[in-house]
Amino acid sequence: MNRNDPKIDGAFPSDRELADFVLREARTLDQQRFEDWLTLFANDGYYWMPLEWGQTDPRLVCSLMYEDKLLLSVRVERLKGERTFSQKPRSRSHHVLQMPHVESRDEAANSYVTWTAMHYVETRNDEQTLYAAWATHHLAVEDGKLRIKLKRVDLVNCDAAFGNIQLFM
């Protein structure tokens, strides 16, 4: 059972409910409740981290991540693994989000888009790395709850050379 995953109050989500969802999602990640986090995705949901500035094509242009729920589940399962040596010791993450901005809402199409500027820190051992990004959430209501159809994370330096990024922004 996913804590902090309430049903929306009315037939359609309010702007406040959309923003709260995005904030709760980041908190779920920082609290390392990765299985709860997966339930926030629709079954056909995707997590996308483009490689190019302003990228529009996830198929014939490479991305840092473009993963469906199966691949995201492999990551979550791997993080728990006894022989996952790159997570011994574990990484930790820290999100600082600006207030999510509701970019668009289309109740008839059950489609809601939010845009959120954020700073993200990932740390492991003595290393701590700061990333700056914008998260775009494409959300829909399923069984009274908000679900992620697409979470797109655009890094301000998406084309830079990075070391390991092991968790989720």
């Binding site: 198929r59 490479c62 473009y66 691949l71 791997r78 790159s86």
Partner: peptide, 19 residues
């Protein structure tokens, strides 16, 4: 491209194993 991002990206779990 799928192979490249799954195996060779800084976000790749296989890459993490090797590095």
């Amino acid at each position: 491209l799928m192979y490249n991002r799954l195996i060779n990206a800084p976000t790749s779990v296989v890459g993490h194993d090797d590095l």
